[in-house]
């Protein structure tokens, strides 16, 4: 018995060693945002069905993805990165310094929704009301910042339901949270005179106030998993959740989105830019890898084909909100001609 175990071990080591280490890569590697992940994976799968090796897609977050992507050129670095925001100047500089030329492709929009269970009451809010409900500190009667005193929705406005404020949302590591505080909370904070003045005087201090979510139990960090939030909303009709539009779209039978500044979060409203809490999604391709890693150009073509990102494409089924026709055309043209990003 001992001998057979020993020989098995030897054989296994031999197999491991013989499979070789640094083989030339023939598979596209993609990293980046977890928001774009569901869309890029869908394209990767389709791309793999046409005969090439299916790209490997990792969800590392936008910032983490940029770091890996801009690390340099070569087989050890990813070929694409997903981003739920445009590349920052600093990141672009890192990229350039390391000899990486990113090609920017804007692939579509994503809306962030505030939603609750169908069995609960529908809600209509302005961004200012969202800020009053969820900010850690709000301007008091004299314009000075005080700890948020609002316990019930009706404390903010008598027209809102007389129910406890209870909102489940993602943690600060999430891109959805970033976008929510930037679009909804900042947008709401700007509506207050004292904060608007602060924004002009000291942008950093303003951001600190606008981005600070309550910590007294009215806002609950529910983890990165949006499905978990959906399940908790079903169990508690009084609670609201913050998540990406695709989750509302896929769970339309259970959830209803709150109207924000008078607009329902629907496919059409987000696509038209009427719904206020939405952002653009991007992918970045590494120009230096085109022609080196097989399938780079074909992957860009697949992503920018109408069959994928068009209004009737399979990405729309996954919840991606397509760009307007003209913009899609120009983005596709720039991407296919490998035009590098310009700031």
């Amino acid at each position: 018995m001992r001998n057979s175990i020993l020989s098995m071990t030897v054989v296994a080591v031999a197999i491991a060693a013989s499979s070789g280490f640094a083989v030339a890569r023939d598979q596209i590697k993609i990293v980046g945002s977890s928001t774009v992940f569901p869309f890029t994976t869908a394209v990767a799968e389709k791309f793999g069905q046409t005969g090439d090796k299916t790209p490997v897609v990792e969800s590392t977050g936008t910032g983490g993805g940029m770091k890996l992507f801009c690390q340099g050129v070569g087989e050890g670095t990813p070929d694409f990165t997903n981003a739920s925001r445009a590349i920052k100047e600093k990141e672009l500089k890192t990229c350039m310094d390391n000899g990486v030329t990113p090609i920017q492709i804007k692939v579509g929009f994503d809306g962030i929704v505030l939603a609750n269970s169908k069995s609960g009451k529908p809600l209509e809010l302005t961004k200012a009301q969202i800020f009053l409900a969820l900010a850690k500190e709000v301007p008091g009667a004299d314009g000075k910042l005080i700890a948020n005193p609002n316990k019930m929705w009706s404390d903010i406005d008598a027209l809102l339901p007389n129910a406890k404020i209870e909102v489940l949302g993602p943690p600060p590591t999430s891109g959805t949270r970033d976008a929510f505080v930037e679009l909804a909370m900042e947008g709401g904070a700007k509506k207050f005179e004292s904060l608007a003045a602060m924004r002009k005087a000291d942008k950093k201090a303003f951001k600190k106030v606008a981005h600070a979510m309550r910590e007294d139990g009215a806002f609950i960090e529910a983890g990165e998993n949006d499905n978990l939030i959906v399940q908790k909303l079903e169990a508690n009709p009084n609670a609201f959740g913050i998540f990406g539009f695709s989750f509302l779209d896929q769970n339309a039978d259970k959830l209803q989105g709150a109207r924000i500044d008078g607009e329902f979060p629907t496919f059409e409203k987000i696509a038209a830019g009427d719904y206020g809490v939405s952002r653009s999604l991007f992918i970045y391709a590494k120009k230096e890898h085109v022609g080196v890693i097989p399938g780079m150009e074909e992957f860009i073509i697949e992503y920018t084909s109408d069959n994928a990102w068009g209004p009737d494409g399979y990405l729309a089924d996954k919840g991606l909100i397509p760009l307007p026709d003209a913009e899609r055309e120009s983005q596709a043209k720039d991407a296919r001609s490998l035009k590098p990003v310009s700031m």
């Binding site: 598979q27 992940f37 994976t41 990767a44 799968e45 793999g48 090796k53 299916t54 490997v56 897609v57 990792e58 969800s59």
Partner: peptide
């Protein structure tokens, strides 16, 4: 080490 990824093959 990149094993939390979407891998079809």
């Amino acid at each position: 080490i990149g094993m939390v990824a979407f891998i079809v093959d």
